[in-house]
């Protein structure tokens, strides 16, 4: 499969007051192929949203580029001219669906007019009527009600607004869709509808691939083909969905997985892992493994130097002594 996005050793820091730097993304490497959904999971503050926001190659202060490479469909977006980036990449090659995207709808405009305004920016040659017609066709194709285009945002439910946003941001058939917690403000049934829509877009080949960022692992179980687990600015483990969800090798992934609570047999009465502490302060240089302070299997070696990514059993793990296959299975299926 064609490689659509390659991120290598990307570093993006927030410039704070007093010259301090917050190393939000501190050396991330990943790839995304055609037809693939890559899930990025981690706790709040792990850098997953920051990573998402840099993928277009545009860095908005206080966020600053600090090294690494992003190749988006063959284009080196870090070195590309920013003006052309905005014009030729946003919406066409890469499209974002941020956290509370539905609030981005202009409350004073009908959805159709809003779409026309937005598209004017990207396709100045297209007339308003043509744009609205194109949107109508897309709504029909996805079996969504066309009437939405004639409605004001306040007349729509939260789920419908978010689905509308999904349609708008994929109107130009982007190769990569980056969705950052697209459903965290919705109730479960709307969440299912929005995610079904995103999956359908992929199946219909309207979009080519997706990066799905969330803190909810059960969601990724159903959405993602591969999953990356982020912690304190780096990826600790990256592998296929079933490797990560059902047989994690990094102690952090294991703890993350066993703290999942879903309405399912065997959950009641299960002991949840008790770990304390919080992720390290990203303003300071971190020596050793970033999870060492909280890891139940920590050794002296772990604190000496930061472990590199290494291949274990078909996936990559940033750990000196990853969990063994057997104990992994015991810990997961209880």
């Amino acid at each position: 499969m064609k490689e659509l996005l390659r991120v290598s050793d990307l570093k993006a820091y927030y410039q704070l007051r007093l010259g301090e730097k917050l190393r939000a993304v501190d050396g991330v490497t990943l790839t995304l192929h055609e037809g693939e959904v890559l899930g990025i999971a981690g706790e709040s503050g792990c850098g997953k949203s920051t990573l998402a926001s840099c993928l277009s190659g545009l860095f908005f202060p206080p966020l600053r580029y600090n090294g690494g490479e992003i190749i988006l469909d063959g284009i080196d977006v870090i070195r590309a001219d920013k003006q052309t980036l905005r014009k030729s990449i946003l919406g066409k090659k890469i499209s974002f669906i941020p956290q509370s995207a539905m609030n981005a709808l202009n409350p004073t405009l009908k959805i159709g007019d809003f779409i026309a305004d937005v598209m004017q920016e990207h396709e100045p040659n297209l007339s308003r009527e043509e744009t609205i017609k194109r949107a109508e066709e897309r709504f029909e194709l996805l079996s969504l009600p066309k009437d939405v285009l004639k409605a004001y945002p306040f007349e729509l439910s939260g789920g419908m607004k978010q689905r509308t946003i999904v349609v708008i941001s994929t109107l130009m058939n982007p190769e990569v869709v980056v969705a950052d917690e697209p459903t965290s403000a919705l109730d479960v049934s709307s969440q299912k509808q929005v995610i079904s829509l995103m999956k359908r877009l992929l199946e219909m080949k309207i979009t080519k691939s997706m990066i799905f960022i969330t803190h909810e692992l059960p969601l990724l179980r159903h959405v993602a083909d591969r999953i990356a687990i982020m912690y304190a600015g780096v990826i600790l483990e990256i592998g296929t969905m079933s490797q990560i969800i059902f047989a994690p090798r990094h102690p952090y992934t294991e703890i993350l997985m066993s703290s999942v609570i879903v309405p399912e047999k065997g959950i009641r009465g299960r002991r949840l892992p008790l770990i304390s502490g919080r992720p390290p302060d990203l303003r300071k240089r971190i020596k050793g493994c970033r999870f060492a302070d909280r890891c139940p299997y920590v050794t002296e070696e772990c604190k000496a130097s930061e472990p590199d990514m290494k291949e274990v059993d078909g996936r990559e793990v940033r750990c000196i002594h990853p969990l063994k296959k057997k104990e992994v299975e015991q810990n997961v299926i209880i």
Partner: peptide, 20 residues
């Protein structure tokens, strides 16, 4: 019933869009 079906779990199928 609907509510519980809509919650993604680890072992039950959740999205039923394949092929539709």
């Amino acid at each position: 019933k609907g509510l519980i079906e809509d919650v993604p779990t680890l072992h039950k199928e959740w999205l039923l869009t394949k092929g539709s």
